[in-house]
Design a protein around this nucleic acid. Sequence first.
DNA 1: TTAGTCCGATGACAAAAGTCACGGGCTTAG
DNA 2: CTAAGCCCGTGACTTTTGTCATCGGACTAA
Lengths: 200, 200
Amino acid sequence: MIRVLLADDEGMIRSALAALLSLEPDIEIIAQCADGQQALTEAVALRPDVCLLDFEMPGLDGVDVAARLRRTVPTRCVIVTRHARPGVLRRALAAGVAGFLPKTRGAEEVAEIIRQVAGGARYIDPEVAADALSVDRPPLTSRELDVLRAGRRGETTGQIARSLSLAPGTVRNHISAILAKLSVSTRQQAVILAEEHGWI
Amino acid sequence: MIRVLLADDEGMIRSALAALLSLEPDIEIIAQCADGQQALTEAVALRPDVCLLDFEMPGLDGVDVAARLRRTVPTRCVIVTRHARPGVLRRALAAGVAGFLPKTRGAEEVAEIIRQVAGGARYIDPEVAADALSVDRPPLTSRELDVLRAGRRGETTGQIARSLSLAPGTVRNHISAILAKLSVSTRQQAVILAEEHGWI
DNA sequence: TTAGTCCGATGACAAAAGTCACGGGCTTAG
DNA sequence: CTAAGCCCGTGACTTTTGTCATCGGACTAA
């Protein structure tokens, strides 16, 4: 019997997956969690064979949970995500996850992937993997990404500068460089572009 | 037998719901669609008893589909949505939908709601309904909302002006009014706030 | 009718944002 | 060692935004 922990903040998909997986003779859902923190504590307490973790969750995201679980609990993590960006896959692999699956795939495949992963194999969605290999490294320096992140909610130059302990002029220089590299003309467009590529 | 059309751009939840609902003895899934346009054509062709429509879909959203179906096909629409904002509910009710259900609810309830709706009743999620009644009309005029919408991707004043056939100064005045009413200091913050409240 | 509100517009002004050139300190690769 | 690249900062400059006062036209409610 494969003991599975299921974490997804969306109740409908969580309960639907739980119901479907419970129909499988060799799979048992031992916990359902609505956020990352809860998933972490449950996983530590129950030591499931496999953790099926949604990426987008309030508080800790799925990859955060996998990373923290890595050295403490001998469990295999599968990340499931709505928007499978290369950046997310890279983060997930760095966190040592055993599986990576976008939600565009059908629910039928989930049980099979859980079996593979429980058996020691890894499963990475081929399409996302191809995307990630074919590149899309951010053309921005790490500091420029910091600035972009700090300003992603429409913060003013002064606010960004304060939150990063920088001079306003420095922030403006970074932003100017960002806009040039991304060939856009406002911060907001830069933020949107970067989010779409999974750079921030 | 209740004939149901299912539309959701997320493959995993679509297939999971289809599998679960097919287990019900009195429910039959006659179509699965991945976007609004497809849902519309299938619904016209198949004339299902109930359409279960995701709100967030590329192209036409679920409410758009329901609105267009309204006068052409005698079917009852249920809108399912991830972020159940009051604005979305209002739009949905205006489009004459028979049911409204956030995805935070469990999948178990879906079958029962389909039965209720097929039987002629309406189902509106009580929590969302309470939210919608208790508050949150946009403090902006309709023209201000247009401007905000036109600028939601970080468009420049000139671009907004062109897309609405306005003078740049007019656009700036509207934006100035918006920022004052919303007590924020940048367009981007205004856009984010308005999106969170479902005003745009 | 009148007052109020919204729309569109203009002009003037202040504040932010963006561009450019340049400097010094730091680390890394050749 | 040197060159290159990044980081942080400054100062000067232009452009874009945001604010304000004001105007006329359309519509609505009292």
